[in-house]
């Protein structure tokens, strides 16, 4: 992979990140209208003109939107995401507390979903159209179609009736406090997340595997007398691996912004909960901060996926290519 390519991609990524910041600013700063009215609700009507102006000045709302954007953007570059209007706590602190929860959830879900999805995808692809293929595909479609909130709700109800366990935000145990206690809390939400993920991984694996299995080099390998197991893993799965890895990476990026429902139902203090609380309390600094962070993470993850993709494939890994 050439340095030039890498630099070009990094430049493109930075451009996208600026674009992301603009969109977040426009959507969450300009669209919601007057923050003060939004914040104080009916009380806003009782403000005197002077109080109102003072507040506007305090929040920097008296300057032009462009100036506001650059002030805000400059803050971002210094790692300043603003202050929660509700609690006065810097948004970066709130995110700092919430991020590990979401990350752990996402990683756990991936660790469960990827092997399951890959194995079942291979199983389905090993005999296209056969009973095993149709059943795996049917279950996979259900996995995608049953909404996460339904699975999460049912799981919580089951936990309550079977173990008299009711998740609550107050009793959250971090991984530092107790590994086992933490895992007990995280396992079920991660499993719920893993269902849809595994279905997606399974579908990608199935089609990538089928595509690779039809390649000429697979026949060449069999023609050498290579064992069927080795043909499947070393040749077919390895080649199918490139699209699978790409998809898994992208799904991981999605997951960072997609744990909201599960965090809500299982009362986990992650980014999703933070975002949801921010939205419900119209605490826009929080909403902006979380949205921005997750989108940026998504962009960076996608960039990483692209780099990994290129490293995995010798055709794009090597420097000068011959014609």
């Amino acid at each position: 992979m050439s340095l030039r390519y890498l630099l070009g991609r990094v430049a493109g990524m930075l451009g996208t990140l600026v674009g992301v910041a603009v969109v977040v600013f426009v959507v969450l700063r300009a669209l919601p209208g007057d923050t003060i009215t939004a914040k104080l609700g009916t009380q806003a009507a009782t403000l005197t003109a002077d109080q109102r102006a003072a507040l506007r000045h305090f929040y920097g709302l008296d300057s032009s939107p462009v100036t506001q954007f650059f002030r805000w953007f400059g803050g971002l570059l210094h790692g300043d995401l603003g202050v929660s209007m509700d609690t006065g706590v810097p948004v970066t602190h709130l995110i700092g507390d919430a991020l590990p929860v979401t990350l752990e959830l996402a990683v756990l879900a991936m660790v469960i979903a990827v092997p399951v999805g890959v194995l079942f995808g291979m199983l389905a692809a090993s005999r296209p159209g056969a009973v095993r293929d149709l059943s795996v595909q049917g279950v996979g479609l259900l996995g995608l179609a049953v909404p996460e909130f339904v699975v999460a709700t049912v799981t919580v109800a089951w936990l309550a009736s079977a173990f008299a366990y009711t998740p609550s935000a107050g009793t959250y145990v971090s991984i530092g406090d107790s590994f086992g206690g933490n895992l007990r809390q995280m396992l079920y939400p991660a499993l719920v997340l893993a269902i849809g993920l595994a279905a997606t991984v399974m579908r990608t694996t199935r089609s990538a595997y089928l595509e690779a299995a039809g390649s000429d080099f697979v026949r060449t390998a069999r023609g050498k007398g290579v064992t069927e197991a080795r043909v499947r893993f070393r040749h077919i799965l390895h080649n199918a691996g490139i699209p699978i890895v790409t998809m898994v990476g992208i799904q991981f990026g999605y997951l960072l912004g997609g744990t909201l429902v599960v965090e809500q139902v299982f009362a986990l203090p992650g980014l999703g909960r933070l975002l949801l609380d921010g939205i419900l309390h119209q605490d826009y600094a929080i909403v902006q901060g979380v949205t921005l962070l997750v989108a940026a993470a998504f962009v960076v993850v996608n960039f990483g996926v692209d780099v990994v993709y290129r490293l995995l494939d010798p055709r794009t890994r090597s420097e000068g290519r011959r014609a």
Partner: peptide, 10 residues
């Protein structure tokens, strides 16, 4: 660059 669900939420 935004995860779909996140963009819808925002």
């Amino acid at each position: 660059a935004f995860p779909a669900t996140l963009l819808a939420l925002a």
